[in-house]
Structures are given as C-alpha cells and as structure tokens.
Design a protein around this nucleic acid. Structure first.
Length: 461
RNA sequence: GCACCGGUGCCUGAGUGGUCCAAAGGAACGGCCUGCAAAGCCGUACAGUCGCGGGUUCGAAUCCCGCCCGGUGCUCCA
C-alpha cells in the first residue's frame, strides 16, 4: 500500500490510483529564463525519484513535466538583452535539459511547452467565461475567485483570510471586481508577444498553462500533482481554482517538496544566494551523484541545509559505496546474477511506501554495503547477494553504485596500470622504498591505490 | 500582523505513543588487517534522554498547553 502526504488534506493517505496499477503524475517544470539552481534540482529529483521508485515497484507511471516558455520573466529578460522571447526560452530550455540529463533525471514521458497549448488555454478560458466564472475587462480576463468553492483549501485558508492579505492591492488592480481575482488572459502591451483570442490579442495569465496541459494530457481526475512548496499559493491554488470553476476534476492528490537552505535561509533567486547546478557539476562531475545521495538522505518534505561541506560528506558516502563495488569486482564476485536479499527488499519497499521514505531506504542500502564488505573480506559466498541488493536498491532510486571514477580505459590509464604493476613487483621483492616512491608518485597524480587479496586496484581521488 | 513549519550527538539528518536506554552517512578515537598505508571489518565516546516548563498516559523524542529560538508563506518590496 502506497501512502503519501497529501497537501490538500494535510494527511498521510493511501494513494488510490484512478486506474489500478497506473499512476499519472504532473510535476511543475521550470520557467526558462535563467540557470537552474540547486533548488530546481531538488524539485526535479524529488519527482524523478518518486517516478523511478513507482516504476521499480511495478506501477505504470505517466510522468508529465511542463516547460513554461512565456511569462513576465522571459519578456523582461528578452527586453533587457535585446533579443526575442523565443530565443530566450529556447536558450535556457536547452541548458535546463542538459543539466537535468547530467543529473541523471529521467526525461518525463511528456514535456509540453506553454506556447504549444495556447489554443487549449483560450478554449479553457472561454468555458470559464461561459460559466460566468470569469469576466473580461480592457486589461484581460479574470477569474472570480469567490465563485470557487473551497478556493483556499490547498493552503488551508479561507477566502476571507486570503483577502485580508490581498486587501491593499485593490487600488492597483482597479479593473478587477475583487482584489483576489487573478488574470487568466493578459491583454497585449506594446512589444510583447501576443496570440489572438476572443478578448483581443494577448497572452496567457496565471498558471492557466498547467491546467490546460495537465488535463489535456492526463485527463480529468489524474492522480498526483507535485511541485515545490513555494508553489502551493498562489500557483497551485489558482490552477486548482481554474479547474474547479470549469467544472473539471483536477488532480486527486498533491505533494510538495521543501526548499533548500543556505546559511539558514531559503535558497532563492530574489535572495541571490543560490548555486547553479552547472557550477556544482563543473566543480566535480561526481557531484551529480553526491547531490542525489544527499537529497535521498533527507526526506523530501524537510528543509535541507546545503553547502559545500555537506556535498563533500555525501561524496564520502558515495566513495564508500563505490569502494564496495570495486572490491566486489576485484574479487570476481558474480553479483549480476545473484539473488536479492528478500528481507532488505521488503524493508526498503515498506520505507518507500511510507511517503517516499528515502532516508530510511538509504539506511537499508548502506547496511547492505556493510554486509557486502564484510562478506567479501570473509570470502562468504553470500557476498554476491548483498552486493546485488545494494546496487539494485540504490539503482531503484536512480543512484548508480560504481558509476564513475574507477580504473578504466580512459586516456593515460595504461601508464597508471604500468606504474601500479611496477609497485607490485617492488613489493614482491620487498623493496619498500621503491614501492612507496611509486605510490607517492601516483598520489601526486591523484591516484589512490588499494591493495586487496586479489591484487591492487586503483581509482582517482 | 495572520498563518504554517522546524528545534534530535561534533556535522548532515532518520524516527511522530511501547519493538527507541534514538537509524544511516560523515568526522573522531581504539583494535584487527597491512612491510607501512589506503580500503574494509569490529569496537568506543559524543543524545545521562530528543529547545525549555508544565500536563495527558501504565508508557512520550513522538499527544496537549504555555514559553524561547530559527525559518517560510501571505502582507510589503521586487
């Protein structure tokens, strides 16, 4: 039984899919106008892990993640750089996709773009206008928020409580019937990209794209909608309102991942305290896996303090897993065909079925790593099971054990192999001085030599 | 101002009524292994009890009340 924390009810509930055995998941994607930062990586990875686990557990998952390629930020950036909006969007989308790939995040089954769904959005808005849930003014089309039953349910606030906060906006938005109302369609302003509509040329307003795309691709009553918890209000609240006002059934469960902190504060664009994913990967490509491990060791709904120190820590944990893998390979253990440890698999599944309990799941993986190391040292034939189980379970969450930095066929490896052989010969002759000199030389070149019962193996530090 | 979330060992962090005299990873220390290392394994200390004070309960890190501290959302600003 799969249980998740549902934002709407604020309770741990059993996820009962619309179609048995199948889960439809819509995860909000980025607006492409700048470098993705670590917060975007956490968001994407949260749903990547969820999707991978569900698939591993035998569910048939339909994962949709959009690209928002038209909005104020894109227009502003295009204006300031003197280029067109599509140029900005295409440029940053390509970078986003590249970064996601580097992070080993699976491409969603569908990745719709907002600008490809404008017709559907217009049709959707027309329905809202026809139902008198929306009204047109000179500046655009607005949704009557107070006509929507349970508008603030997702944030657990009443409409009046929300209105209290929005009160001071009345004057600014003089066009609106009610300060809470928000734009579904924005009338064209000079120099902005526009599309035709029954209300004149303009462009999509708040979050209508996600409604059109999620319902368009996944259909009414799809299972799960996710995103960062900074989207709960107003973004997801408004999406939900639009769907309800149109008489549609929107997503039936909601999950939201927590933010990343730097020095105790939320990482965000406006605070300018973010690290881009590219910076992290340029520092060391292994950081892609280190970041995944770090995120897995923290529950997705908990704020995580992130800095170079905790990344280093995660990398050390990763080294431990990889060392186990190298040792197993060197010992000639045939783990690929080995059986899984049924008890560990059961515990892992139990942890994951409890609101994606990845920290517990990873604890189980590490226990298998320790068991594997011990068994390999002892020459225990059970070693292959532990090795296989660790690799399998980590792999189910997208973490590849033994993924990189081992000895291989890269440029210069033959030379290192030769040096390692020389050291082995010196050791055989008990010429410790020569052996240590060679090891020092290797160390200087960033190579670590590890002696095992089946001979030396080496890796890049 | 309103609301929400969090405060667990040196660090990152699991656990949300008994199986917890509190997982896992990292760092530290000791032992084994090694020619010496590295890696690994074993063990130890650090949480005298889970921010503080009350309460509920046979039983609380876990529930309730109050307080302190930190953060976030709305507001403001962009």
């Amino acid at each position: 039984m799969l249980r998740i924390h549902d934002t709407l009810t604020d309770e741990l509930v059993e996820l009962k899919p619309r179609i048995p055995g199948e889960i439809s998941l819509y995860a909000c994607g980025p607006t492409v106008y700048d470098h993705p930062h670590l917060g975007h990586a956490r968001q994407a990875m949260t749903y990547d892990v969820a999707r991978r686990y569900l698939e591993w557990a035998g569910w048939n998952v339909h994962h949709v993640a959009n690209i928002t390629d038209i909005d104020d930020n894109i227009i502003n950036r295009a204006t300031s750089e003197g280029v067109t909006e599509p140029e900005i969007a295409q440029h940053w989308e390509a970078i986003y996709l590249e970064v996601m790939d580097d992070l080993n995040i699976l491409a969603p089954h569908d990745r719709p773009r907002a600008t490809e769904y404008v017709d559907e959005m217009v049709e959707f808005i027309q329905v809202l206008v026809d139902r008198d849930a929306a009204y047109a003014t000179d500046s655009g089309v607005y949704l009557r928020v107070r006509s929507v039953e349970g508008y603030g349910d997702l944030v657990h606030r009443t409409v009046d409580e929300l209105a209290e906060g929005a009160g001071t906006r009345v004057e600014i938005d003089h066009d609106k019937d009610d300060p809470l109302d928000f734009a579904l369609w924005k009338a064209a302003k000079p120099g902005e990209p526009t599309w035709d509509s029954p209300w004149g040329p303009g462009r999509p307003g708040w979050h209508i794209e996600c409604v059109a795309m999620s319902l368009g691709i996944l259909g009414d009553g799809f299972d799960l909608h996710g995103g960062g918890n900074d989207l709960v209000f107003p973004h997801h609240t408004n999406e939900r309102a639009e769907a309800i006002a149109a008489g549609r059934t929107f997503s039936r469960y909601w999950m939201h991942n927590a933010m990343l902190n730097i020095n105790g504060e939320k990482m965000s664009k406006s605070l300018r305290n973010y690290t881009t994913v590219r910076e992290l990967l340029d520092e060391d490509p292994r950081n892609a896996r280190a970041l995944r491990l770090l995120l897995l060791q923290t529950h997705y709904r908990k704020i995580l303090e992130i800095n170079s120190e905790v990344i280093e820590t995660a990398r050390a944990g990763l080294d431990r897993m990889d060392a186990m893998f190298r040792k197993a390979e060197a010992a000639g253990i045939d783990h690929a065909a080995a059986e899984l440890d049924a008890e560990a698999v059961a515990e892992f599944t139990k942890a994951m079925n409890h609101d994606f309990g990845t920290p517990e799941a990873m604890a189980i993986v590490f226990e298998q790593v320790r068991a594997a190391n011990g068994a390999i040292d002892a020459g225990d034939p059970q070693a292959s099971t532990a090795v296989r189980t660790a690799i399998e379970l980590a792999g189910a969450l997208g973490l590849e054990i033994g993924g990189d930095n081992g000895s291989g066929d890269a440029e210069g490896d033959a030379e290192i192999d030769a040096l390692v052989d020389q050291r082995t010969e010196a050791k055989a002759a008990k010429d410790w001085a020569t052996a240590d000199r060679i090891r020092d030389e290797l160390t200087e070149r960033g190579i670590v030599v590890e002696d095992t019962p089946s001979g030396p193996i080496w890796r890049r530090a």
